[in-house]
Each structure stands twice: as structure tokens, then as C-alpha cells.
Design a protein around this nucleic acid. Structure first.
Lengths: 262, 262
DNA sequence: CGTACCTTTGAACGACATCAAAAGTTGTGG
DNA sequence: CCACAACTTTTGATGTCGTTCAAAGGTACG
């Protein structure tokens, strides 16, 4: 048996993200096309940046392992986490070619990232309609997630926001919903970061988490998130489908519209 | 001269959205391809729905004239406006084929809409890489806008949120930024709707607008928005580029990353 | 084992919400 | 063209959820 290292495109077959995000649903020849333009796979340490707000972003990135936060700094210095990236998430899509990043991508843990050089990937996308179409779908899923966050922050109180965030993270990490009592996942977030994602202070997040623990809804002690009462969690997070007459007949928001896509 | 009515694809050449949104930057043959699958152009009255939350959305829609709000109803009945559509905006892109709409599209004014049957457009997109790629770009622009709204609601106080919203609307309607003193546009929103877009009550929006008027920043009396002091408006809306040392070297969020796309 | 950071808890404050009522605006039909 | 009803906007008084400030535990890591 040869012990030579795998060449970049060979490793795609055994990539942990082969069935996630961009690569999910791609046929072997499209994976090969991707593999051919793949720059490399890198492991970067926690707290490093994949790209920075205000700077160009030279690579598209597929997160293979670890957690990343997409964070923007506002003019007054406040920081806001727009989204988290978990394994399978595709990063680096810009609304305009050559645009500067509107936010930073900062690693919450050590991260394994598959880097695709921007120019080469753009060129591939302009020739490969399967990948192009998948990309449009991913962008639409990201839009839907951003809108879900918008409704969460705009429309729920502190308890609901935190419950909703935890539900989303559980779903995205486990790709299973709803959870059952006793389910546990690792969520490497500080209270400060949960606060920046929910527009609350870390002090208040602490109080909310204590209350959710006392109510035996969920238990979070970094980095361990345990679901104690799925029904109560879904209710707290706003996943109760109840039709109101003054809703003008519309149904409640579909829970995780991006489900099959990640 | 013949007086026969224009056939659907002939009218694209003189369409008010020919240089906006999806159709911007498309060459004549791609426009022809689009025109061939175009279902029709309809004028619908204010307060009608283009699609409803919880229901499937049968058409892609290009707004040719008028204003639309994308609004979601939460489980507790609160309503949140996720985005507005102005002439040129492309609507109906879903993260999953066949997904139900997560929000409703409700007309704020009489709206002229170009309808593209979903199945036929999807089929066109799967064959036409120019259009597919443009679609991905549009979706990315929508994502960026949703993130901008997220940062706005999550990070600014009432005055900043309203100022930011008004700035965005000015830019999207006029495609010019920044405004100059005396610029006036029509913004057909009630205070209630401004509140739903900024997560404030209409009562508080009223107070904020009074203050902005007294400060001679802007004047809004439905439907007339007049910019009084562009500098003060930009500052209030958070478009002041100042680098903070503890920003970790990142620049402030790029203002309207979606600029050339609408 | 000490230093730096994160989390928890309490007390006081404040921005925005809620409640209520008056004034203004729009649309409709007589 | 007026009158009336329905809705929107404005303003004041009061209430509250989450913030801010402060200080005391925890916890992790060199």
C-alpha cells in the first residue's frame, strides 16, 4: 500500500462536508470540477479571522470542522453577530464582485476550512450551471436565515430570542428537529457572543439562561447545551403553529425553510 | 403604422425595469429568453397580496412600479417587515424548491408586476448560466440587505434605526447616495409600517420623526420624505466611517454593498 | 498558583412600550 | 360639496424589560 498523501481532489470523496452545503447533491463530476480548483484545506486556530470587515475576501470558504461567527462592528463600536457557520456552511459570497466584506468571519474554535480561490471559483461558476444553481440556492437559504434572525431579534423578548437561537444551532449542528429530551450538543459560545447574536447584554443572557435552566427547558454551560424539555423549548422559541384570525389567513413562518440545504 | 399591441417580449425593451435588478446587465438574447417565458404583466391594487405566508408562491415577480412590503407574522401575532420591494426588485426566490413562503408580499401601493411562472423560470435558469449567475448575485444582495437590517435593528437606537431606514429607502428609490439637502421622494409608508420595519411602535416612530424634523435632519409626512440635512442624516444613520482601535482593525460596514444591483 | 477572563448576582436607571384620548386625514356616499 | 365613519398621527402619563454599573465568585491557562 502506498503511503503518499491524498491529492486535493482525492480527499473530496471522504470530506466531512461531502453531503453538506454546496457539495451536497453534486454529482461526482461536479465534485471533481470543484476539487480541481480547490486551493487547499487549512486548519486555523480559534480567534483567527477567515476574512475581515472592510477588506476584500480572497477565497470562498467551506467550513469542514469547527465554528465561525460572522460579526459586524457598527459605527459606535457595538458588535453584532449576523450568523454562525458550522460544518458545511459556505462563506464568502458577495453581492458585488470585488466588494469589501461587510463583516468579519472569526473562528470560535479551531477551524478546518476548504479554501477556493475566488477568481478560479468564479470562473468555474460561470461555466458550470449545476454549481451556479446550487450557489443561488445557498444564497437564498442564507437570505432566509438572515430574515429569520431579523424576525427573532425584532419580534421576540429575551427568553424567546435565546430559545430560538439555541433551537437553530441545535438543528444546524445535529440536522435533526425537533430535539428529544436529553439531547446534548457542544456550542462553543460565551454569553457575550450569545448576547451579540441576540442583541442582549451578556448579563441579561446569563439571567435568561438561568431562568430556562430553572424552568427545566434547557441547560447551557459553555460549551454544553442540553435540551431538557423539547416541547417547552419549541414553544419558547416560537415554533408553535397557531393560526390567528387577524393574521389575514397566513400560516406561521415555516420553521427552518433552509432545512435540506444547511 | 400598425397599432397592434406589443407582444410580451417586445415590451421588455421599453420596460421600466430593463436596467434594474435581474434584467440589468443582461444582453438582448437573455432578455429575449426571459421574455419568452414571461407569464404576463399585471397591475394589482394596494393592499393586495402577491403571495402569502405559509402558502406556495407560484410565480417569480419583478416589481416594475409601486411598493411592496415583505411581512412576516410571528406566533404571538406581531408583524415584522423584513424588506421593502421597489421598482426593479426581484421576488419569489426560495431556499428550497416547493417551499412555502416564510412571509407575505403585500402591496403598499398599486403595483405593476412582471410575473414569471415558477416552473418555466426554473427551467430557464437551469439552462441559462447568465441568468442563473445573475440570480445568485441577486440572492447574495438580498442576504446582504437582510444582514444590514439585522445590524440596524440589533445595534441602533430608535433614532438611528429610523434614519437608517430612510437612508436606505432614499438610496433604493433614487439610486443616488448620499442625498443633497432638499431632495424629496415619495415613501408610501404609515408610521405603523415604519415601526414594523424597525421594531418600534408607531407611537415611538412618531416621536422620533418629530425629533428628526425639529433637528432639521429630515421631514416625513406621509408620503413625502424630504432630506433636510444630509450630513446629519448620514451620521444619525450610522454611515460615519470612523475606525476604532478596538475594532480589531476592521473598517465600518460597507454602506450599501448591494449598490449596483438594487 | 496567579492572572486574566468569564459568569453570576444585586441595585438603580433609562429607552421604549403601553394606555388613553384628542386632533388630523382619508375615503365614501348622500 | 358636505357629513360621517374609519383610520392615522400626535401628545401626555405611566409602566416595564433590559441595560448599566459594580463587585463577588468561577474557571482556564500559562
Amino acid at each position: 500500500m502506498s503511503l503518499r498523501p491524498l491529492r486535493p481532489w482525492e480527499s473530496c470523496a471522504i470530506c466531512p462536508a461531502r453531503r453538506l452545503g454546496l457539495c451536497a447533491q453534486l454529482a461526482a463530476d461536479d465534485i471533481t470540477a470543484l476539487a480541481e480548483i480547490k486551493r487547499n484545506v487549512r486548519v486555523v486556530s480559534a480567534a483567527s479571522f477567515l476574512y475581515r470587515q472592510g477588506e476584500p475576501c480572497h477565497d470562498y470558504i467551506i467550513v469542514l470542522a469547527g465554528w465561525v461567527m460572522l460579526r459586524a462592528v457598527l459605527e459606535d463600536g457595538s458588535k453584532h453577530i449576523l450568523d454562525f457557520a458550522v460544518p458545511g456552511t459556505f462563506l464568502g459570497l458577495h453581492p458585488i464582485p470585488g466588494a469589501l466584506s461587510s463583516h468579519s468571519a472569526e473562528c470560535l474554535t479551531s477551524v478546518t476550512a476548504c479554501l477556493l480561490a475566488r477568481a478560479r471559483f468564479d470562473h468555474l461558476v460561470s461555466r458550470n450551471i449545476t454549481i451556479c444553481s446550487r450557489l443561488a440556492q445557498l444564497a437564498a437559504a442564507h437570505e432566509a436565515r438572515a430574515q429569520d434572525h431579523l424576525a427573532n431579534i425584532g419580534g421576540r423578548d429575551a427568553r424567546g430570542r435565546v430559545a430560538h437561537l439555541m433551537s437553530e444551532l441545535f438543528f444546524r449542528v445535529q440536522r435533526k428537529f425537533p430535539p428529544v429530551a436529553g439531547d446534548v450538543i457542544s456550542v462553543p459560545l460565551s454569553l457575550e457572543q450569545i448576547g451579540q447574536a441576540t442583541s442582549l447584554t451578556s448579563v441579561h443572557v446569563s439571567r435568561v439562561l438561568r431562568r430556562l435552566r430553572e424552568e427545566r427547558v434547557l441547560s447551557f454551560r459553555k460549551p454544553r447545551l442540553e435540551i431538557l424539555d423539547p416541547d417547552a423549548l419549541l414553544k419558547a422559541a416560537g415554533f408553535e403553529g397557531h393560526l390567528e384570525s387577524w393574521c389575514e389567513g397566513s400560516l406561521p413562518r415555516s420553521v427552518f425553510a433552509e432545512r435540506p440545504i444547511m
